[in-house]
Design a protein around this nucleic acid. Structure first.
Length: 279
DNA sequence: GACACGTGGCC
DNA sequence: TGGCCAAGTGT
């Protein structure tokens, strides 16, 4: 096995660094996260540092990682850490889980990888490895099931530090070898014991997966609008937004949605800006 | 439980 | 070439 030397997996990385990485990695590939994570940690090395910055600056620094509401939630999580935990990232799954943007996976991951706690870490990689090696299926079900969590719990080593290492290893296996498309079974340490390989590597028998529509969607529209705001120094006039999305009805709906989400702030003079950013 | 939510790279 | 996929969460 090859364990990647990722900055948030190094010994000296703070729990805050681990939390930032886990939120950034939600639905986003490692390669795109790395440079943004480095800039982020240099600028905001502690939860208090981020909490002291305007939310809009977090959105801007999020750059093109996608799903920018995560930046807003991370900013809110930093505030909650300062308010409720004295500025230290908590080490318990329950306290972590109560932070904005931290769900079951992220809470378990931070508890395990930042604090060495024995938690059941189940992400898409773990699910795929287990579906194949144990379940004999090409891909896991569309949504996480209680049975999958239970299985992951049974497979987890009893010793806490070993359990954390185990979780990293299974995730790395899923990310580098047991990949969704074109898995490298030839270099997999589990080939001999893989139920899916033993069954002849049958194709996925689940329901066809619906691809995410993109062209012309609200998501694309929101992305365009926010990109203009991110790249602008301060506030921008409505005309700048009109230019990147001419269709008025949809543009206004998306703008309203961005404002409702707290990603955009409408100014009294009719212009728009990232929330709290310098005018 | 289904849906909304960004972005870019890969085969 | 374009559908598929990437360390999910909140509603």
């Amino acid at each position: 096995m090859h364990r990647r030397d990722l900055p948030w997996r190094r010994r000296g990385c703070s729990p805050w660094g681990v939390l930032v990485s886990e939120v950034m990695l939600q639905q986003t590939p490692v390669a795109r996260v790395e440079p943004v994570w480095h800039r982020w940690m240099e600028r905001w090395p502690t939860p208090a540092a981020l909490a002291g910055a305007p939310a809009g600056e977090a959105v801007r620094a999020w750059d093109r990682l996608g799903y920018p509401r995560r930046a807003l939630r991370l900013h809110a999580a930093a505030g909650a850490v300062v308010e409720r935990h004295g500025g230290r990232v908590p080490d318990g799954e329950e306290e972590l889980r109560s932070l904005p943007g931290v769900g079951a996976y992220t809470a378990a991951a931070v508890a395990a990888f930042a604090f060495g706690r024995r938690t059941v870490v189940v992400d898409t990689n773990v699910r795929r490895v287990h579906a194949r090696a144990v379940g004999g299926r090409a891909l896991p079900a569309p949504a996480l099931t209680a049975a999958e969590t239970a299985l992951a719990g049974r497979l987890l080593p009893a010793d806490a530090p070993t359990a954390a290492t185990w979780s990293v290893a299974v995730m790395e296996l899923g990310a580098l070898v047991c990949t969704a498309r074109a898995p490298r079974c030839g270099s997999c340490p589990l080939v001999r014991r893989c139920a899916w390989v033993a069954a002849g590597s049958p194709p996925d028998d689940g329901p066809p997966r619906r691809g995410q529509a993109w062209e012309g969607t609200d998501r694309q529209c929101r992305g365009r609008l926010l990109q203009v705001l991110r790249e602008a120094e301060g506030a921008v006039a409505g005309g700048r937004l009109r230019a990147v999305w001419p269709e008025e009805l949809q543009r206004e709906r998306c703008l309203d949605g961005l404002v409702a989400d707290g990603l955009v702030e409408p100014l009294a003079d009719g212009r728009y800006a990232l929330p709290g950013s310098p005018r």
